[in-house]
Design a protein around this nucleic acid. Structure first.
Length: 305
DNA sequence: TTCTCTGAAAGTTTCTCAGC
DNA sequence: GCTGAGAAACTTTCAGAGAA
């Protein structure tokens, strides 16, 4: 069994466009050539990748699996090609970063914009998949810099990783102004546990500030709807008075300013210390200037509570 | 010889439109 | 609104050409 690059291009083009004819136009081939390629690929794999329905091709579950990988491989290859061109042209390379928390993408754009203007020869690449285990990615050399919660005191002892404190922000509970808890300035973990929770379950996983507070009170959320913070959906649910969510105060600052939600301190206050983790040796020479740029754009003390 | 391509032709399905 | 004819669009198959 041997998959060629042309097969990957074929899969993605048909999946995108829904027909062999359109895919052929995109790939600058004849439809008959693509038909043969597709049949060849299906013969090699021993099954259908696209279901022929009338004049359209619909991807099968098996085809979807392979198409997903084809997209990733082609995207990776395109990145590698672009970076290689930059290197060959004398540019200084790429700064690869990741973050352990999707919420940071709200303040990263101005950092990226400002830093890229000052470093036009260096491309910043956000390695999203490394966010799952950023320190591992750092040790493996897959990234140059990771935005993480915590510092050297929280991480397992490792001489290869260096932490630079960036800022501290407060984790608050958000409710609608119409919610009964909205009249309070402060809530206990057990008050929140009785509510419907909208947000990522890993935000109250064991070891997180919220998870530890819930555990200390001997309670846990029973009605949880997993939603990505980056989608904005948890805040929409809170605004509709359908429950609570917990996130950094600065993240909800626009909604707080418009009085569309109310922020409540949890217990005596839950705090997140954000750091930039970098490799002590062998990393990109640009990490220091990027960290300096992040410090310039960090959430302000008033927004961070 | 093998692989990959093009072009022609056949067959299928959808779209459009006139006629009822 | 329904029906049928013709046009258009599409996939598939086949024969043959060109490159390695």
């Amino acid at each position: 069994m041997r998959l060629d690059l042309r097969h990957l291009h074929l899969l993605v083009a048909i999946d995108d466009l829904g027909s062999l004819h359109a895919a052929a136009r995109r790939l600058h081939l004849s439809a008959s050539a693509l038909s043969l390629q597709l049949r060849d690929l299906e013969d090699r794999l021993g099954g259908q990748l696209f279901e022929r329905r009338w004049r359209r091709l619909h991807v099968t579950p098996a085809g979807r699996r392979l198409t997903h990988t084809a997209r990733a491989v082609l995207a990776d290859l395109a990145r590698a090609e672009a970076e290689t061109r930059l290197l060959l042209a004398g540019h200084t390379g790429t700064l690869r970063i990741t973050t352990a928390c999707m919420q940071t993408y709200h303040w990263l754009p101005p950092v990226l914009e400002s830093w890229s203007r000052a470093h036009p020869d260096t491309q910043v690449s956000i390695v999203g998949e490394a966010g799952v285990a950023p320190l591992d990615a750092l040790r493996d050399g897959a990234i140059d810099l990771a935005l993480v919660v915590g510092d050297a005191g929280d991480a397992p002892s490792d001489d290869r990783v260096q932490f630079t404190p960036l800022f501290r922000d407060e984790l608050v509970a958000l409710v609608s102004p119409r919610h009964p808890l909205a009249r309070r300035r402060q809530v206990r973990a057990r008050d929140l546990a009785a509510e419907a929770y909208w947000g990522a379950p890993d935000s109250f996983a064991p070891g997180t500030p919220l998870g530890d507070t819930l555990a200390a009170d001997g309670v846990s959320f029973t009605r949880v709807t997993p939603l990505a913070y980056a989608s904005g959906a948890p805040l929409e649910m809170v605004r509709a008075n359908l429950g609570v969510t917990v996130c950094p105060r600065w993240f909800a600052e626009p909604d707080l300013a418009r009085r569309e939600v109310v922020a409540l301190r949890i217990g005596g206050g839950l705090w997140l210390d954000w750091s930039a983790a970098t490799a002590r040796a062998g990393g990109s020479p640009h990490t220091a200037s990027f960290i300096a740029e992040m410090k310039r754009h960090r959430p302000t003390p008033s927004a961070a509570g």
